[in-house]
Simulated scan of single mutants.
Amino acid sequence: MIRPASFVPSLHVPPSEDALLFLFEGGRLLLREDGTLPQGRLEDFPVDLVNPLGTLDGRPALAARLVGEVPGGHTLRPLRGTFGVLPEDLFGLAGYAGQVVEWDRTHRYCGACATPTRRNSHELSKVCPNCGLTVYPRVAPVVMVLITRGGGAERELLLARSPHFAPGVYSALAGFVEPSETLEDACRREVREEVGVEIGGPRYFASQPWPFPHSLMIAFTADYVSGDIVPQPGEIEDARWYRVTELPGLPAPFSLSRQLIDAVAGGK
């Protein structure tokens, strides 16, 4: 879920009758019943935590939290469920909007002294007027590793499934980067922890913002070196080798994990 190239961030967005409105209740986004995004003025909706986002192709975009009843003619949908419903540019911007609103909700008070925070006028941050602590929207780096062995039609991918995955879905391994850890070291540690095998030097593939809730996915490929698969209890429900010609159920097409698997399985 990447912000579209035509989006221009700004903290100062004038009211507009055609403004794009990203209104959230928890992790759900408000849409019209026909699946389109609400437009117009925020005054027409029961909201708080209003955050100007910027402009998309010249149109103002604003985010806020819905605090009252769902207006007639509208419905709430889980953000993930808007893939394929919203156009790709709006889907990407919705991910950004959801993270900004959640950051605003969870940083209304200073984490050091509990004083109400104030927004900065020149950047997307909040500052404590008492102790000076400045907080920015959280971004948590996550490494993703697709391990391969063999070649040609016999090439295999090590795929695993979390207990939280949809039934039958397998993906690449992934985990959060720890403090004072390089991305490459995080790859090796996560693979060792989750499936008990050793890998060669990770090779960068691509990255993707992932607003569930506030991650930056950083994908790598790596060659298998040694070890038998031993799934980590509580984290990995199952893990096994799959030939590239006989893959199991895979993540959604918009996810970086799916793009990584498709590229490697296709020989890229």
Rank of each mutant, 00 (worst) to 15 (best):
G227T: 09
A61K: 08
R258H: 09
A222L: 01
D89L: 11
G249F: 04
T82V: 07
F22S: 00
L157R: 09
L20R: 13
T182M: 00
L23A: 02
V143L: 09
L256W: 00
M217A: 11
D18F: 13
Q99L: 08
G132H: 00
T182Y: 04
P213K: 06
L247H: 04
C113A: 04
G234K: 03
T55K: 15
D44G: 07
A222V: 04
P4I: 12
R77P: 05
A186M: 05
R77W: 14
E17P: 09
A5V: 12
H74P: 00
H214L: 12
T36F: 10
E235K: 12
L158Y: 10
R138Y: 14
A265T: 04
P52H: 12
G27S: 12
P78W: 10
A219G: 12
E246T: 00
C128P: 06
L76M: 01
V127T: 15
E246V: 00
A140I: 14
E69P: 09
G92K: 07
G27D: 14
R240F: 03
V101P: 02
R32T: 11
H214W: 13
S255C: 07
G132A: 06
F220T: 01
R240G: 07
P233V: 09
D104E: 15
V135W: 12
S226G: 13
G40I: 06
Y170H: 06
F254G: 08
L256A: 05
A114W: 09
R118C: 10
E194L: 12
V47H: 11
H164M: 14
R149Q: 03
F83D: 08
S180A: 15
P163Q: 01
V195Q: 10
I2H: 05
A112V: 14
Y224G: 03
P71Y: 10
S121Y: 11
G73R: 03
D104L: 15
L124C: 06
A61Q: 09
L146A: 10
T55C: 07
P248Y: 11
R258S: 04
Q232R: 15
S121W: 13
L66C: 07
L66S: 03
A265V: 00
D228L: 07
R240N: 05
R77V: 15
R240I: 02
C128W: 00
K268C: 07
I147W: 06
S121Q: 12
V135D: 09
R80G: 13
R138I: 05
